[in-house]
Design a protein around this nucleic acid. Structure first.
Length: 251
DNA sequence: ATGGTCGATAGTCGA
């Protein structure tokens, strides 16, 4: 299965920029979207239907904010919306679809960029997410955890590691969490195939960052070792958002 | 230190 992860920064905006045409050409089996910023009923589904995609949405309680969705050409055996936790589910940040023994997750990890309060929330959220994934891993051995992690793991993953040493998304405690998470039995599939630098998935809209490739790699397709991973990549030329899509070919 | 740019929304707020 080809699985694409893409923070689309508002699905209605991305649709206006040609998201559907791109999906039709790409023909991925599963699209994991983050930051849909809409309710399911705010989007016209007729063209998605024609393309053969069904979608499963988990939106935030707050209008126009956050939200994740999975679009798939294959009918899932099971879909779960959120963690099943009242507090951590308010912002619509995780949805999961199971295809046979393969569990595919679309996750949008909180940003801490707006200040200390949100940074604190992010770190708490990360601890909760870690436990959720480890519990899930006991039952479902084959996990593909796609999404916007809002963390650059290593200096190679950011254009200016020195200048950003105090920036949310590249703080030591966030990078340590990412190391702890991966070391606990998960694979950053992109790095498995691509050791080269300057490979990013997000650029600020400010200061022409994207054309100068002043970016961050914060979007990941992470798997358990039980998943057979044939290839992985970043689609930097695809522009409907301040992020670009990342993908993995997984069985 | 500030502001630079977006999307969704109706205030500004969050990223």
């Amino acid at each position: 299965m080809q699985i694409v992860s893409y923070n689309i920064n508002g699905i209605r905006s991305a649709l206006n920029k040609g998201l559907l045409n791109w999906m039709e050409q790409r023909k991925a089996d599963v699209y994991c979207f983050q930051e849909t910023k809409a309710l399911r009923e705010q989007v016209d589904h007729s063209t998605f239907d024609l393309l053969g995609y069904k979608s499963y949405w988990f939106s935030a309680q707050k209008k126009g904010y956050s939200g994740v969705a999975i679009f798939t050409r294959h009918k899932p055996d099971l879909v779960t919306y959120g963690f099943g936790n009242e507090v951590y589910d308010e912002e619509g940040r995780i949805v999961r679809a199971d295809f046979g023994d393969l569990s595919v997750i679309s996750v949008y990890i909180p940003s801490g960029s707006s200040g200390e309060t949100r940074q604190g929330y992010k770190m708490q959220w990360l601890d909760f997410f870690y436990d959720y994934i480890h519990n899930l891993k006991k039952q479902n051995k084959k996990l593909v955890i796609c999404g916007d992690y809002n963390i650059c793991h290593k200096p190679i993953d950011i254009h200016d590691p020195v200048g950003n040493k105090n920036s949310s998304g590249f703080l030591p405690e966030e990078r340590e969490w990412m190391s702890k998470f991966l070391d606990s039995g998960f694979i950053d599939t992109f790095r498995l195939f691509h050791p080269e630098p300057h490979q990013y998935s997000w650029w600020t809209y400010r200061a022409a960052a994207r054309e100068r490739n002043k970016g961050w790699r914060i979007d990941y397709c992470v798997t358990t070792p039980q998943v057979t991973v044939k290839a992985a990549g970043i689609l930097q030329q695809v522009v409907h958002s301040d992020h670009c899509p990342v993908w993995v070919e997984a069985e």
